[in-house]
Design a protein around this nucleic acid. Structure first.
Lengths: 415, 415
DNA sequence: CTAGATTTGCAGGAGCAGGCACCAAACGCC
DNA sequence: GGCGTTTGGTGCCTGCTCCTGCAAATCTAG
C-alpha cells in the first residue's frame, strides 16, 4: 500500500511555497501593495489576489487603502497588505548566564512586549529557571492588548542544542548537561498550546541579525556572539549552518595557540580561552568571574583611557582577529558582525581585528569582507528565538486556521 | 510591459524539478525500474511513465526489459531505465602542478576514456597549458566509440576560482594570477560547442567524493585536499560551500601557530605552512620542492620503517589534526575525508589526527565524526570536474534537444 | 499445467494552481 | 472634464500530477 498525504500533489506544494514566499516578504520587509508583491514574487496579479485573500482569511494579514499621505503614482491605487498584530506571534525566551528575558513578538519582528530580569544563573537548576521564567512571562502576557495568537515558544540557550529534539547537550555557562529544557517549558506553559523550539544563542543572534540587522542584504554572513562562552552563528547562502546534529558554530574551540592556556573544554589554546570573557577580565586585572558588572567596569575604564583596560582589549582583539581571519578563509563571507560582549567593546577591538585580518586572511576574501557591529543589541536573541518559533508558520502559512469572523473594520470590502 | 519567459509558469518548474530529480537519481545510483523510480521520487506511476518517456525522447536514457537472471518478485515486471552512453557527457580536465589529466565522463560518473601526462607546470603559461591539454584531449576524443554528446567542459584548477565568471584569481602552485583560463579553453575547444566551467580542485574532489565516494550517505562532509597547496571542499546540508565569491574552503590559511613559520601568503603559522607538502618534505630532510617524486620516496621510506620519515608524517598529522579539530567544531560534520597527498599518507597520519581530535574537538561533534580516506583516488578531480560540467543538464534535462531518430534496438516498444 | 494473487503499464478523466485577456474602476495630469 | 495609466476582478485556458479502471505479465500453489 502506498503512503499518501505524504506529498499530496505538487500543486499544493506550489501553493504552499507561494504563500510562504509572500508571508516571508512581508515578514522581512514592510507593508507592501499588491503590485509590489506581484513584482517581488514574480507571479501574476491574479495569483497575488488569490494568495492575499487566503492570508486574510486566516487572520494573518489585512488590507487597507493606501494612505493619501504618501505620494502616488498615476493609475488605480493598490491596497496595502500588512501583517495583522492579532495574527500569529511567538513567545521568545532568553536564558543567559546573568539574566532571563522574555518577549512577545509578532510577525515582522515586532516586539509587542518584553521583560527582563537580571540574576545569576550559573548552576541554577533547569526547574528553577523555568519557574523564574514563568514569573516573568505571566504578567507580561496579562498586560497585552490585541495580543497575537501564540503559535510557538522559542528559547535561546547558551549551549549545544541537539537539532533533532532540542535537548540541551551541554551548557557550561549554566552548568547543564543533557537537559530537556523544552519539555519543562512545554509543561509550564501547556495552557498556551504552543510548540516549543530551542536554539543556540549565537545561532539565534545570527538569524536575527541576518534577517533584520547587520546581516541584511548579504547571503554569507557570520555573527560572532559571546557572553560567557564564545560561539558564532553562520549563514551560508541564506541558510543557518547547523551541522549534522546542530552543534555547528562552536568557533570558541578552534585552536589558536596549540600550547596556550588550558580551556574549560580540556584543550589548550582554544579561541575562547584566549579571548573569552574570563581571559579578557583576567588580562585587565579584574575578577575573571566578575560577569557583566566587571565588563561594564572594564569598558568604562577604557572609556576613561585606562591603559591596562585598553591593552587588554587590544590583546583580545588580536586573538579574535586571528580566529576571524581563519573563518574568513574558510567561509569567504560578505560580512562579519560582532555581537554580545564583543559588540559592546567593538570600538576597542575593531582596529586590532582588522590588523590581524590584513595579515592573515587571503587577499581576495579579505578585500570583500565587511566587519561591523551587531545592530539589534540585546534584542537579537529574543528576535532570533521568535524567528525560530515562527518558522513553521512562515514555511506553511496554511497551518493557521481559517477565521470565522469577518475581516475587521478598516479592511477593504469588495461588494 | 512585463518580462515573461522568466518564470513561465510554476507547472513548468515542477516538471523541470521532477525531470531533474529522476535524472539525478539515476546519475548517483544505478539503473532503476520504473517502480523503484516512483517509490524514490514519491510520484505516481503514470508520472514516472511521462517523465521517462521525455528522457527517452531526449536521448538521455533508454528502457530495456529486466534481465531474467535477477530474481523476480511476483507481478508484472517493470522495465529498467538506464543512462544511455551516447547521451550527455562531459569533458573533464585536470590541471595540477605535476600533471595534466583529461577524461570523457558520461552521466552516472562513468569514465569512458581518460589520459594523463606527467609534467611540471610550475610557472607554465596558461597558453602552454591549454596547448598541452589539446595534445592530450584530441587523441582521446578520436579513440572513443559511441561517444556521449559533450555538453560541457569542466576544469579543475588548484587555486582560487571566482564563482561569478570562473576566472582564476590566483593559483600560486602554477604561478597564475587573474587568468581567464576558461576563455582560453573555450577557444581551443570551440569546435566541441560545449560550455566551460572552472572549479577549485578541493571543491571538485569533495563534490565527487560526496556523490560517489567517501562522502556517500552523509549530508555534512568535509574533504581535505592537498597536493602542493592545502584546501578543503565542504559540503553543508548536501550543497557545496562556495562563499560569497567562490573562495570558500581555504583552510590552508587558518592560523595554527600565530608565531610559526612564514607562509607563502605572508602570514605566520598557517596550516599549509605547518603541514603542507613543503613542510612535510622539509621535516623529513628532503627537498621541499621535490614534488610527487619526493613524496613517493618519503612514503616508501615510511613503509620501510624509516624513523625520520615516520616522525615527519606524525608531526604533520598532528598539525593537520589541530586544523581538523577546528573544522569539526565549526561544521559538526558527519565525516571528514583525506584526499590527494593526505590520502596517500593516510595510514601514517590517521593516528595523530585522531589524537588531536580527541584532545581538541568538542565531545559531541567529535563522537559523531568519521575520519576516512578518499575512495576515488586520482579520479576524484576528473569526476568532480565532470560533475560541474554536467550540472546544467542535471538541473534541467529538458535543455537536451529532442531526438528525431527512433529509439535504438533493445529498447522496449509499445505496439 | 492452471488458477489466483500480485504488480505493473496504460488510457482517460478530474482537480487544481497559475497565467492571460478583457473590462471596469480609480487615480494623476493637463 | 477627458486622457493615459495602473490596477483589481472575472472567466477561460494550459499544464501538471493524481486517481481509477482495465489489461498485461509474472510468481506461486496446487
Amino acid at each position: 500500500m502506498r503512503m499518501h498525504g505524504e506529498i499530496e500533489g505538487a500543486q499544493a506544494e506550489i501553493r504552499r511555497r507561494n504563500l510562504s514566499r509572500m508571508l516571508r516578504e512581508l515578514h522581512v520587509s514592510r507593508p507592501l501593495s499588491r503590485s509590489e508583491l506581484a513584482a517581488r514574487l514574480h507571479v501574476d496579479r491574479s495569483t497575488v489576489a488569490s494568495l492575499v485573500s487566503e492570508l486574510v482569511g486566516r487572520g494573518i494579514v489585512l488590507e487597507r487603502p493606501r494612505s493619501r499621505l504618501v505620494p502616488q503614482s498615476p493609475g488605480r491605487p493598490s491596497p496595502v497588505v500588512e501583517l495583522r498584530q492579532s495574527g500569529p506571534g511567538a513567545l521568545a525566551l532568553d536564558i543567559a548566564t546573568d539574566w532571563l528575558g522574555a518577549a512577545v513578538v509578532g510577525l515582522g519582528g515586532k516586539i509587542i512586549a518584553s521583560a527582563r530580569r537580571d540574576l545569576s544563573l550559573s548552576n541554577a537548576s533547569p526547574e528553577k529557571v523555568v519557574a523564574d521564567l514563568a514569573g516573568i512571562v505571566r504578567p507580561l502576557l496579562a498586560g497585552i492588548e490585541n495580543a497575537p495568537r501564540l503559535v510557538g515558544i522559542g528559547v535561546s540557550v547558551p549551549g549545544l542544542v541537539r537539532a533533532e529534539d532540542g535537548r540541551v547537550h551541554a551548557a557550561p555557562a549554566l552548568g547543564w548537561r543533557d537537559v530537556a529544557i523544552g519539555e519543562l517549558i512545554k509543561e509550564e506553559f501547556a495552557d498556551l498550546g504552543a510548540s516549543v523550539c530551542i536554539g543556540n544563542d549565537a545561532d539565534l543572534a545570527a538569524s536575527a541579525e541576518y534577517l533584520r540587522g547587520a546581516g541584511r542584504g548579504t547571503g554569507n554572513f557570520i555573527c560572532i556572539w559571546g557572553e560567557v562562552g564564545l560561539g558564532a552563528g553562520i549563514v551560508v547562502d541564506g541558510r543557518l549552518l547547523s551541522g549534522a546534529a546542530g552543534y555547528a558554530g562552536e568557533i570558541g574551540h578552534m585552536t589558536i595557540e596549540p600550547g596556550g592556556d588550558l580551556c574549560h573544554c580540556g584543550a589548550r589554546g582554544c579561541l575562547e580561552s584566549v579571548v573569552g570573557e574570563e581571559a579578557l577580565l583576567r588580562r585587565s586585572g579584574r575578577d575573571p568571574l566578575g560577569g557583566t558588572a566587571a565588563i561594564e567596569d572594564l569598558v568604562s575604564a577604557a572609556d576613561r583611557g585606562d591603559e591596562v583596560a585598553l591593552s587588554a582589549l587590544v590583546e583580545s582583539g588580536r586573538g579574535l582577529g586571528i580566529g576571524i581571519a581563519g573563518l574568513v578563509n574558510i567561509f569567504n563571507p560578505d560580512r562579519v558582525a560582532l555581537g554580545g560582549l564583543y559588540g559592546r567593546v567593538y570600538r576597542y577591538v575593531r582596529a586590532p581585528i582588522l590588523l590581524e585580518l590584513e595579515a592573515r586572511a587571503m587577499p581576495a576574501p579579505r578585500a570583500m569582507v565587511d566587519l561591523v557591529t551587531g545592530r539589534l543589541g540585546g534584542n537579537a536573541l529574543l528576535l532570533g528565538a521568535a524567528e525560530l518559533a515562527l518558522g513553521p508558520t512562515l514555511d506553511d502559512p496554511a497551518i493557521a486556521p481559517l477565521l470565522q469572523e469577518q475581516a475587521p473594520a478598516g479592511a477593504v470590502h469588495h461588494p
